[in-house]
Amino acid sequence: MSLAAEVLEACKARGWMLATAESCTGGMVSAALTDIAGSSAVVERGFVTYTNAAKREMLGVRAQTLDAHGAVSEEVAREMAEGARAHAPVQLAVAITGIAGPGGSEFKPEGRVCFGLACEGRETLTETVEFGAAGRENVRKAAREHALRLLLSAALS
């Protein structure tokens, strides 16, 4: 069984709906989930918020947070995940914001991806994973898989 199928099964068993808030993955998590028949029992919606304006308008990410920490930060990932929960009738939301490449900087290198996980009745979790300069496609795939593992872990705990 695929990781996405496991997420759907675990959420369905709990009666949970989920939402995604994606930047650098551009909807890859939602696509992995909705590629599976019956996913509408679990996937409520996905937000692709590639620009800062989209993060503000669609998820309520504060301009002050973006200005102070930049889009690729745990602070923004937290607000994205919490914003997805606030804007959708779901129990679980995952957020992804990062630098897939090519490019990056000394302070925010290629392959840095920040995640947020907002779950009803729990404190929002954030983390940063350094996937390294593995190339755009590989960083995006790795971020998708990591987000699916976060969703699965939340649904099973």
Rank of each mutant, 00 (worst) to 15 (best):
T97V: 02
T97H: 03
T97G: 08
G98N: 03
G98S: 05
G98T: 02
G98R: 02
G98K: 00
I99T: 05
I99G: 01
I99S: 01
I99N: 02
A100N: 07
A100F: 05
A100L: 01
G101H: 04
G101P: 01
G101S: 10
G101Y: 02
G101F: 07
P102F: 13
P102W: 13
P102D: 13
P102M: 13
G103F: 12
G103W: 10
G103D: 10
G103Q: 11
S105V: 09
S105H: 14
E106W: 10
E106L: 15
E106A: 15
F107D: 13
F107M: 08
F107C: 04
F107A: 14
K108S: 08
P109G: 09
E110I: 10
E110K: 03
E110H: 08
E110V: 14
E110S: 08
E110L: 08
E110P: 02
G111L: 06
G111T: 09
G111V: 10
G111I: 04
R112E: 10
R112P: 00
R112L: 15
V113K: 00
V113A: 04
V113E: 01
V113G: 00
C114N: 10
C114R: 00
C114W: 00
C114G: 01
C114E: 01
F115E: 03
G116M: 01
G116Q: 03
G116A: 08
G116D: 03
G116C: 08
G116T: 05
L117G: 04
L117I: 07
L117S: 04
L117Q: 06
A118V: 07
A118H: 04
A118T: 09
C119A: 15
E120T: 15
E120K: 14
E120S: 14
G121A: 07
G121Y: 05
G121L: 08
R122I: 03
R122V: 02
R122C: 05
E123N: 10
T124E: 05
T124A: 12
T124K: 07
L125S: 13
L125F: 13
T126E: 05
T126S: 04
T126Q: 05
T126G: 04
T126W: 00
T128S: 15
T128D: 00
V129G: 03
V129M: 05
V129P: 01
E130G: 06
E130L: 14
E130K: 10
F131Y: 12
F131D: 02
F131W: 03
A133V: 00
A133R: 14
A133E: 14
A134D: 09
A134E: 10
G135V: 06
R136F: 13
R136K: 13
E137C: 04
E137S: 12
E137N: 12
N138I: 07
N138A: 15
V139K: 02
V139T: 11
V139L: 06
V139D: 07
R140E: 12
K141R: 15
K141H: 15
A142T: 08
A142K: 15
A143N: 09
A143H: 06
